[in-house]
Design a protein around this nucleic acid. Sequence first.
DNA 1: CATAGGATCGCCT
DNA 2: GGCGATCCTATGT
Length: 209
Amino acid sequence: MKSTGLPVDNLLPLKFYQRDDVLQIAEELIGKKIISRVNGKVVEAIIVETEAYNGVHDKACHAYGGKRTPRNEVMYQQGGVAYIYLCYGVHHLFNFVTSVEGDPKAVLLRGVFPVSGIETVLKRRNKSKMSFKIGIGPGAAAQTLGFRTFMSGKSLLDPTWIQVQESEFHYADLPIARLPRIGVDYAGADAQLPYRFVWEGFELVLSEP
DNA sequence: CATAGGATCGCCT
DNA sequence: GGCGATCCTATGT
């Protein structure tokens, strides 16, 4: 995909994140563009996969039952901040916190496709060549963008480290599959909920830059 | 304080 | 498809 040439004033506003329906937000995030600025390196990527975590009634959610810990505290902030945590001691998983203060819902970023800053991405991912899979998987997606746990709690509208904005793709026009979430077997019946959103066939639309 | 386990990945077979 | 890496976090004593 070539550079979009879109202006930078199309950032998603706070009210995008502060809606109640985290499933809608997770779906609408498909096709959006994330621009990260970390250690002076700029990477632009299109979101191709997300998962919704639906607050205190969702057994797969870190805030199930109203649980509050130092780690998940930022989930209780108003929508529009990042929740980043370390998984399996190895992976930095990035979430968009949504809804209003006190309602701990979030969208996990599960897959991106980088469209600029490829040299930086290859270095971060320890790869020698680009592929469609380079940013697929929540650990790989955060690593592609250079996101680390110390950034947890930071605003999603702070362009010194992140911009989330419209792209030329609109979620309503994309073939988005709804599937069960990955790695949440401990959640019982909630593990079967179709809260995972995948842009199937993004490889046919996006091309390696 | 001790311990078990995790919104995973990538290498091995 | 199996498994080790790797360390923070949550929980219980």
